[in-house]
Amino acid sequence: MNMKYTPKEITEEVNVTPTHPLVNLGYLAGTVVVSLVAIYAAMGVAVDLVVPRLSRSTEIKIGDSLLPVAQDQFGGNVLADDTRVDYLESLAQPLIREELSDLPITIHLMDTEIANAAIIAGGHVFVTTGLLEESRSENELVFILGHELGHLANRDSLKSLGRSLFLLLGSLALGIGTQNGQSSPLLNTTLDFQSLHYSREQETQADRYGMILTIEQYGHGGYALDFFERHSAHEPSFIPEYVLTHPLSENRIEALELFAAENNWSLTGDLVPLPEGIECPNFDCGNE
């Protein structure tokens, strides 16, 4: 084999693309960032479109999977066998209107001093013993329950999950991290009561819903707003948790009074007293 070898200097760089690495990274990062922002924005918009279309059974599944996490985050034990739960259920039952008739409403009484009430999707209503202790009349309780039912009717809890909703729906579809009775880290990240915040519009809607139910129940709105008035009077020295998750200002009380006036609803009427021993387990304060 005889070939003549002529040395030739390598001058062309065929193996290296002649694009400046910074320019390349710039385009790359731009593409990725723009796509992520677009997906994130699309998911935010999609929540409001998807939530009204979810079936009741999906909502119940989501609620059941979130329940253990929600109970953990609330703190305190669940008083499942307390007769006060039966009382609260009997209070709530007449308040359930047609739009919620296919949703089983479950009341969870939480043993904690912090006065609070909240809901999660799937008809789970949380009431704390602290709220019962601080209540002065049934009228107050009915309005608070009505307000929470308003959030349920408007699916505010599902909406407040925001983009996590898609994570939840995905994990439900795949059956991961949603085993009953176990609070998984995945779900812990999707639900955060501490930072739970409904929009002003959502609160207004829930307030009105609560007011309508109260009027239907008693024929008047008397004493219904007392709980809030007491607490707004306490501000700012004492800000109860209830006000934190449901920021309630003088404005909201005024808005409700205006709403009642527009509909010619009376805000005065008879007080319906709470049953004896509402602050004690099973209504039994042991002072016989």
């Binding site: 193996n15 290296v16 693309t17 694009t19 690495p21 390349n24 990274l25 790359l28 990062a29 593409t31 990725v32 796509s35």
Partner: peptide
């Protein structure tokens, strides 16, 4: 970043 979208990895070519 390139792993997200695929394509030529210029910085590794060199």
């Amino acid at each position: 970043l390139r792993n997200l979208v695929g394509g030529r990895v210029l910085s590794y070519e060199s």
